[in-house]
Amino acid sequence: MALLLPVIIGQLAINVIKQHNQEPRPYVVWLSQTDRQADQHFYQLDVAQRQQLIKRDLASNGAIPAWQQQHWLAQTDPAFPSGHTIFAATWALMAVSLLLARGKWLLSTVIVLWAAGVIISRLALGMHWPGDVFVSIMLALYLSMPSVYWLRGGFTGD
């Protein structure tokens, strides 16, 4: 439970923040450079209307692979903050903190590389801005450290 709680709280926090936020994803800004109205009103539209705007803008751009187009169409919610990043960073921070205390360097390295891959992919795929990722990592740190402290015996009162 001590490991799941920070992950669950993080995902809930992301959902609440995104409901009150309308920061466009980088790919939305890029696609809307030819249609400023789409950029200004994108998050006031429902999901189906957002997807239609993206499809329209992608139709004139053959440089984007089909798999990435499908990814963009599936994620039309606001950019800030990054749910994938907080998920990966929370697990990585907790796992590495606990594993390094036991001398598990190789497994810790693998976990850090996995989390870094997730985080870098969010930027490379045009899903998030660097600030989205940074704030999500800071939230992950804030959420994961009490659990790590508790699991390492920090709240025992000794």
Rank of each mutant, 00 (worst) to 15 (best):
L3M: 05
L5T: 15
P6H: 03
P6T: 00
V7Y: 04
I9W: 11
I9T: 09
A13M: 12
K18L: 07
N21K: 12
P24D: 05
R25V: 10
Y27T: 14
V28M: 07
V29N: 08
L31E: 09
R36P: 10
Q37A: 05
D39Y: 08
H41S: 01
H41N: 06
F42Y: 09
D46Y: 07
V47Y: 08
V47T: 14
A48H: 03
Q49A: 10
Q51Y: 06
Q52I: 02
L53F: 07
I54Y: 04
S60F: 02
N61W: 03
G62D: 15
G62T: 14
I64M: 06
W67S: 15
W67D: 14
Q68P: 04
Q69W: 02
Q70I: 03
Q70T: 08
Q70S: 09
H71C: 01
H71W: 02
H71D: 13
L73A: 02
Q75T: 03
D77A: 03
D77Q: 00
A79S: 15
H84Q: 06
T85D: 02
F87S: 12
A89T: 03
A89N: 07
W91N: 10
V96D: 07
S97H: 01
K104A: 13
W105I: 05
L107P: 01
L107W: 01
V112K: 01
G117F: 02
I119D: 01
I119M: 10
I120W: 13
A124L: 14
L125E: 15
L125P: 02
L125W: 15
H128C: 13
P130T: 10
V135P: 11
M138E: 11
M138H: 08
L139F: 13
A140R: 12
A140Y: 13
L143K: 15
M145Q: 15
M145S: 15
P146I: 10
V148A: 12
V148I: 13
L151Y: 13
L151T: 09
G154R: 09
